[in-house]
């Protein structure tokens, strides 16, 4: 079981959080083609390895934050604010 370091509440058990999936997805303009809109809604990198994703501390402060996490080892590589750019 993972422990995530909530930027507001500190280290808490995974069970307190919900994952919101891939982060940094940019919504296309409303006049986008069906192809672009479909890709925006459904198509994902789904990487095996480091993944940038959104989490919410649902049973704590309620805040959304970003996580860089390895999908194989589940190691947390970085925790950063939703407004921050991805770490390099």
């Amino acid at each position: 079981m993972m422990q995530l370091n909530c930027p507001c509440c500190g280290l808490r058990d995974e069970a307190e959080f919900v994952c919101g999936g891939t982060t940094h997805i940019v919504r296309p303009p409303l006049d986008a083609t069906d192809q672009v809109w479909g890709e925006y809604l459904f198509f994902r990198e789904n990487p095996k390895g480091p993944h940038l994703e959104r989490w919410r501390h649902a049973q704590g402060c309620g805040q959304w934050f970003n996580l860089a996490r390895d999908t194989v080892t589940h190691a947390i590589l970085a925790v950063y604010a939703v407004t921050e750019p991805p770490p390099r």
């Binding site: 079981m1 993972m2 058990d13 995974e14 069970a15 919900v18 994952c19 999936g21 891939t22 789904n46 095996k48 993944h51 994703e53 989490w55 999908t71 194989v72 080892t73 589940h74």
Partner: peptide, 13 residues
């Protein structure tokens, strides 16, 4: 386990 994973093991919770 509702987060993306390629680890063939699950969370205890």
């Amino acid at each position: 386990d509702l987060f993306p994973s390629y680890a063939q093991r699950g969370s205890f919770c």
